[in-house]
Structures are given as C-alpha cells and as structure tokens.
Design a protein around this nucleic acid. Structure first.
Lengths: 189, 189
DNA sequence: AGGCCCATGTAATCTGTTACATGATTCC
DNA sequence: GGAATCATGTAACAGATTACATGGGCCT
C-alpha cells in the first residue's frame, strides 16, 4: 500500500497521465519511489475506483487520447493520514553490492566493468538532478528557496536523490581503484 | 533470483545457521541486502535442494539443534555466473521520501518526528558500521587493509552502508531544520 | 522499411510481507 | 513470573516483474 501514496504525492503538483507518471517513476526521476508502467496503470485504476484521484479524458489529434489525473480531497486526506502514521525503515537491496561482497571469491573483471557503468549512470543522474534543482529554485539561492519557496517537497527529495547518487559515484570509483590495484599487485606484468 | 545470491555471498566467509543469517539480514548488518527470517529459511531449503549449499546438523545441549550451511562448488559457480552477468540498476523506495515529497500539502508535525527518528536510527548504524570496519581492519589503516587484506568484500560493502547512513542522517537533519524554520516563519508566536 | 515515441492495458509468475505456530533456556 | 534469545518453519496474502498485446504518427 505504498505505491498508492507515492502516486498521490507525485500528482500533488500537476495533473499527469499514466504515461507521464510512468516515465517519471520508471526512469526514477521521481527519486522518492520507483515503479514500472504496468504497476502505475493498475494503481491509477484502483485509485480512481476508490475516489482518491479523478481522471479526465483529453482528446488529442495525431496521437492517442490520454487521461489526466489529479488528487481528490479524499486522496489528500489519505495522504495526510499516511504521513502521520509511523514510517518503516528502508533497506538496501542492490545486486551490485552482493557482487562486491563476493569479490574475494570470484573473478573481478566483469565486476569492475559494472562498477564503472554504475558510476557513469550515477554521474548522468547527478547532472540531471542538478538541472532539476536549478530549475526549481530559479534565480534564488538554495537557502532562500528553502526558506521562501512554495513547493519545497520535490526539491528536498531531489536533494536526497542527488546525495545518494554522489555516494554511488564515489563508492564505485573507490571500489574500482581498490580492485584494480589489487589485481596488479597479485599478478605483476 | 537475487536473494539467492545474497545468501550465497553471505555464506562465503563463514558457515552460518538460518537463524544467524536471519539476524544479519533482518537487522541489515548485511548491508548489501535485506531479508526477513521466513524468506531465508525458505531460500536455504531451496538452495540445499539445488545443491548450491550444504547443511550439517550441529547437536547442541541446552538449546535447540541447528543446521550450519556452507557454499558448495556448484554454489560458487552460480555466484561466479551471477557476478559476470549484467547488473540491474537499483532504485529508491522509501516511505519517508514520499512523505517529504508531500510536505507542502500536509501537516508536518508528525513528519518532523519521523525524520528525527530516522536520523537517530542512521546514527546508531553509523556507529555500528564504524565498529565493524575497525574490527575487520584490526590495527592496519584503511589504505593498508584494502591493499593487503584478504577479505575486502565485506569491508567495501560496509563502507557503502556507512556512507548511505551518513547521507540519511545529514539529509534528515537538514530537512528537519528546513521544515521547522518554515513553520516558525508561517506562524510567528 | 525499421525503429522510437505516445498511450494503455491484461495475464502469468515470481518475490516479499504478515500472521500464525512451537518450544526450551537464560536473564532480569 | 515475564521477556528475550535460540531455533525452525507453514500459510495466506500483497506487491512487483516479465511477457504479451495493440496501434497510429514521426523521424531517418
């Protein structure tokens, strides 16, 4: 029952279609939650059935019609309740960490390549988040924006996403350097 | 099929019982993966059926008997294959971030309390990870250990866990400060 | 002509969570 | 006497992933 609230939170600031939501959640631009398109279409159907969002059909030429959804009063009340309830801790589940855990017992060639790839992915996201943050705060400084801005929720979650990816980048780089150095030491020439 | 490999990776360094594994995965000391006891008992049964781990009964007095598991050659080969295969990106799914995303539209009193709690949780883990790291490297410096140590996998994953929790702590503290300042500004007195 | 973007779903399967179940020992 | 720790599971349900399905427009 958590995707529900993530969708509601994403729809607070703007009316979106299932497709638009899907892009945000699937690419992880919505850095507070991840979900696939199929999940979102199903969840939107349920949310509308339960009266927490309402959709309106938008007829388009030269491309398929779409349905834009917005949060209802009942939906906002649901979010309010969710926010007041206690939060479960969130834990890491990452294939790449599992592989590094096993690094002493398996061949690390492919692993180094994957760490490098992950670092590149992280850098791309750091770049993207930086742009999103600049776009949200406009010409204000971060401090000013967080004091006076009127939609700081998305800004704050984006800050967490940014720091997370910076952590990924740094750790991947360091791990690659460590594994490379050890390989050279164990098989010189 | 990822819990499978996480369990194999956890059993590489030592023989463990289901119960011991469960503690590591449930408390998240195994900071590369999280799982509940029930999942682990089920997974161990499957892993043994498939010949990837082998268990041996250890008879104990004054407490229930237990089964200790270790990775077989087939299990190691499976891990090797897993490590060589490409890695899926890992994404964030965190109730607390969903709540902060909605912060502009809901009451933030309970939210501030939850952020404070999360920060305390993060601090406890930072402490724990610091001790684990010191324990692993002994009297060597980190640099020396990473160069010469013979089990650096767990050390490297613990470093990631540490940085992750430091990120959590810092972000929670900053978010609390931001939300508090705004509340005072909007309702003076 | 082939591939990508828009746009929305269904169905089958796999994973993960929650609740239930048992029972001895040790610590406060 | 009650709670925590050791030790292992089963069963029901909720949530997530993968595969399948459709179809027009736009770009190269």
């Amino acid at each position: 029952m958590a995707l529900r609230h993530a969708v509601l939170a994403a729809l607070l600031d703007e009316e979106l279609s299932g497709y638009q939501l899907a892009k945000a959640f699937d690419l992880g631009v919505a850095n507070f939650w991840y979900a696939q398109p199929q999940q979102l279409y199903a969840e939107l159907t349920r949310l509308e059935r339960d009266g927490l969002v309402s959709g309106r059909e938008v007829v388009q030429e030269s491309r398929p019609n779409k349905r834009l959804f917005r949060v209802t009063d009942a939906g906002l009340a649901e979010l309010e309740e969710f926010t007041a309830a206690s939060t479960k801790p969130s834990f890491i589940r990452d294939d790449l960490l599992v592989k590094v855990q096993a690094a002493d017992h398996v061949d690390t060639t492919a692993l180094v390549a994957q760490l490098t790839e992950r670092a590149a992915f992280a850098r791309a996201r750091i770049d993207l988040f930086g742009k999103l943050l600049r776009g949200m705060r406009g010409d204000r400084t971060e401090e000013e924006f967080l004091r006076d801005g009127d939609r700081i929720g998305p800004y704050l979650t984006c800050l967490r996403g940014l720091a997370f990816e910076e952590g990924n980048r740094d750790w991947c780089e360091r791990t690659v350097a460590t594994l490379r150095e050890r390989r050279q030491a164990s098989s010189p020439r």
